[in-house]
Design a protein around this nucleic acid. Structure first.
Length: 435
RNA sequence: UCCUGAGUAGCUCAAUGGUAGAGCGUUCGGCUGUUAACCGAAAUGUUGUAGGUUCGAGUCCUACCUCAGGAGCCA
């Protein structure tokens, strides 16, 4: 019985006879020598099978093995400079669990494929090296987010997925027909509930899926995406910005520390990530509008930043930009107005560099009960639905705020991807529910 | 929802209105160090769907379907 190892652990077993269980990634042959390339989920290893050293039937079986067939290979591990991973396995024995049929070969070959074909085969596409790298970076980012908040006094309090009311308008909600008395919707943000838990725990965060029924069809949109939302009692806008910056720096640092190989597979320009250092660029909405107008944008004061506007701004700097104090009129009902300038709100967007744009949106929430009630009425929202939310201002209200970061947008930026669809294992997009 | 573009072999793409093609993949054969290996041979088609124009349509026209890119909205 030889020792079962994973390919990622090969370095510690050079010279030993081991076995590796995996799938055939590719196979090259040259007469009396065959090079099966094995992948096992942890990495890729080239094996070498010589006709002269193997029983005839074993060599023939290996020689005709098809892509993605599952097998267990036994043999001796050897350091080898000619091998891509630095190690090679000299095959001594093979157990084939399943040979993939020749009449229905594995569809994703090592050549070019179009995006529709790949998306239709997403369940298989995840086996490719590039997708592996992205999902591993995503894992590292999520772990870094959790580690950051866990080590800074935040308590994880997850919020419900079924909600009775919209948190910012109802047009973008997915309706669920199940609850008898009430219409239910899939959450588009945990924020309102996080405000409640922040009043209970001081500093909290929630992390889960959110749903937006927007008819958006761009490289930045998913209908189902994951969002991390910290919320802090006794925090003002400056504190919210400080935490957002510190968290992003922590995430980028972790990825650079632990996922360099993956970034290399993705051909990410690592120097661009190494330039991400504090302090970030801080800019008021007023200045952003002036800057954009000077650079050819059609934006006028009072309008929201378009995708093109974000690109113009972020290409000017090699670090994230924090734009704050947006016009109150274009922001959500709960956004705290600037006491010195009622027409702007104490909200902030964080724009990632290289044209990636908004990855974070947040700000200070209204803590005055009368003002909040007035805003709910002005926005034509049903007061009854917000009774519990108004309670938070009735029983010991305090200035507070937080932000939400879309995980997939963050992954797209850090990995340097053109489209958000590759940042999640099974993306849900407009018109894309399968696989 | 709107604007733009594209649907041809399993995949990526060619084909002046006039016989449907190549590379990859698959199969068979060759090669003892290949790196998306290479060399030789073979099989593979309801040209997205439905109509129309024409002696003749993959190609032109109309509608629809699907996908892609973008806009608005957002993280």
């Amino acid at each position: 019985m030889s020792l079962r190892i994973t390919i990622s652990d090969a370095a510690g077993h050079a010279g030993e006879t081991v076995e590796i269980a995996g799938w055939l990634y590719n196979l090259r042959k040259s007469g009396k020598i065959v090079f099966p390339i094995l992948r096992d989920g942890s990495g890729i290893m080239q094996c070498v099978a010589l006709k002269s050293l193997l029983p005839e039937e074993v060599f023939e079986e290996l020689k005709h093995l098809t892509q993605e067939s599952s097998l267990i290979v036994r043999g001796k591990l050897r350091a080898e400079v000619r091998a891509p991973g630095g190690y090679e396995l000299d095959v001594e024995g093979v157990t084939i669990l399943q040979k993939v049929s020749e009449t229905e070969p594995y569809p994703i070959t090592p050549k070019d494929h179009g995006i529709e074909f790949l998306m239709d085969h997403r369940h298989l596409w995840l086996r490719s090296q590039r997708q592996h790298a992205i999902i591993r970076v995503r894992h590292e980012i999520i772990k870094a987010v959790r580690d950051y908040f866990d080590s800074h006094g935040f308590t994880l309090v997850d919020t419900p997925i079924f909600t009775p009311a919209a948190c910012e308008g109802t047009t973008n909600l997915f309706e669920v027909n199940y609850f008898e008395d009430d219409k239910a919707y899939l959450t588009q943000s945990g924020q309102l509930y996080s405000e409640a838990t922040a009043m209970a725990f001081g500093k909290v965060y929630c992390f889960g899926p959110t749903f937006r029924a927007e008819k958006s069809k761009t490289r930045r949109h998913l209908t189902e995406f994951w969002m991390v939302e910290p919320e802090m009692a006794f925090a003002d806008l400056e504190e919210i910005k400080r935490v957002a910056e510190e968290m992003i720096l922590f995430i980028v640092g972790r990825v650079l520390e632990n996922k360099r190989e993956e970034l290399k597979v993705l051909e990410r320009d690592i120097s661009k990530l190494e330039m991400i250092q504090g302090p970030f660029i801080r800019m008021s909405y007023d200045d952003a509008v002036k800057n954009l107008q000077a650079n050819g944008s059609e934006i006028v004061w009072g309008g929201d930043l378009g995708g093109g506007d974000e690109t113009i701004l972020t290409k000017q700097f090699d670090k994230p930009i924090m734009v704050d104090r947006f016009p109150t009129a274009i922001k959500a009902f709960y956004m705290q107005p600037d006491p010195e300038r009622e027409e702007v709100a104490l909200g902030v967007d964080v724009l990632a560099p290289e044209g990636y744009g908004e990855i974070i949106g947040g700000g200070q929430r209204i803590h005055d009960p009368d003002l909040l009630l007035r805003r709910i009425e002005e926005h034509g929202l049903p007061k009854e639905a917000f009774d519990w939310y108004l309670d938070l201002r009735k029983y010991g209200t305090v200035p507070h705020g937080g932000f939400g970061m879309g995980i997939e947008r963050c992954v797209a930026w850090i990995c340097g991807l053109e489209h958000i669809r590759e940042t999640i294992a099974f993306p849900r997009l407009l018109n894309r529910l399968r696989p």
